[in-house]
Computed example of a mutant assay.
Amino acid sequence: MKNLLLIAAFCVALYSCGTGNETMKNTSGNSNTEKDTIRIANDSLEYEIMIIEPGFESWLATQPPRGFYGQSLLESKNYSFVSEYNNRVLQPAKYSHNLYAEQINYDPALDYGYEVNYLLYNYFIYFQDKYNQKFIGGRN
């Protein structure tokens, strides 16, 4: 179950980077990518969540703070969002493989803790907003 959560987030991040023709203005080594990478890991449960998405961290700062939602609500929403996401992965003719590259292995019976559920929930909200996607139970 290593690298269980948000492998797809990495794929989405790669897609969002694109191959643009713009030149980089900041070549000092302190790129904004470092600031836009959030990683949480728990080796005893063998899971890892990595969110590599430009703009996610600054967007997250504008959202309701940790503790605003209860963990059970976040778990319920995440289960719903993951189910919808995984269904879209299985329909590449209908949904872009660039957005829905790989399934997310989220077990609702496993306690991932508040922080993981909070970040995963907010990532799904961000994903829907940024890529104009609508999931059942989403905020749009």
Rank of each mutant, 00 (worst) to 15 (best):
Y106W: 05
T62C: 08
Y106D: 02
I104K: 01
A41V: 13
G70W: 09
R66I: 15
G18E: 06
E48Q: 12
R139E: 12
Y85S: 05
R88M: 03
N105Y: 05
L45K: 15
K25C: 11
S80V: 10
S31E: 11
E115R: 10
F10L: 12
P65M: 06
N117K: 07
F10K: 10
S83R: 15
P92W: 04
Y95F: 13
F10S: 10
E46C: 12
R39A: 10
S80L: 15
L119W: 02
Y15E: 01
N87F: 10
Y85R: 04
E102C: 01
N122F: 14
N42W: 05
N86F: 01
Y69Q: 05
G138D: 09
Q128Y: 01
P64M: 06
M50C: 14
A93C: 10
N140M: 00
M50Y: 12
Y106V: 00
L14H: 09
N30C: 08
D129P: 00
S58Q: 10
C11Q: 05
E57F: 12
Y69C: 06
A93S: 15
R66T: 13
I38K: 09
V89L: 02
N86R: 01
C11T: 03
N21Y: 11
I40K: 07
N140P: 08
V89G: 03
K35E: 12
S58T: 12
R139W: 11
R88D: 00
N21P: 09
N21I: 08
F68M: 11
S96T: 07
G138T: 07
A93G: 14
K77T: 07
A101L: 05
T33A: 15
L90N: 14
F81R: 06
Y95K: 03
Y114H: 05
Y79I: 08
S72P: 02
N3H: 08
G20P: 00
I51M: 02
M50P: 02
E48M: 10
D129S: 12
F56R: 07
A41M: 12
N30A: 11
Y95L: 01
D111K: 01
Q128L: 01
A8H: 11
Y100A: 01
Y123V: 02
Y131A: 03
L119S: 01
G138H: 00
A9P: 02
Y126I: 06
Y114D: 04
K134W: 06
N105D: 09
I49E: 04
T62H: 08
D36T: 11
Y100C: 04
S16R: 13
Y121T: 03
H97D: 07
E115W: 04
R39W: 06
L74H: 06
T37I: 14
E48N: 14
K94F: 11
K2I: 13
G137V: 06
T37R: 15
Y114N: 04
I136W: 11
W59D: 02
L4F: 04
G138K: 05
Q91F: 04
A41L: 13
D43G: 10
D129K: 12
A61V: 10
N26G: 05
L120G: 03
G55T: 06
P64T: 09
S31M: 09
R66Y: 08
Q133N: 06
V12L: 02
F127A: 01
E84N: 09
L74S: 07
F56Y: 13
G20W: 04
Y106R: 00
L45M: 14
Y112D: 04
E34S: 14
S83K: 14
L120W: 00
L99V: 06
L4M: 08
L45V: 07
S80C: 13
Q133I: 15
Y95G: 05
A8P: 05
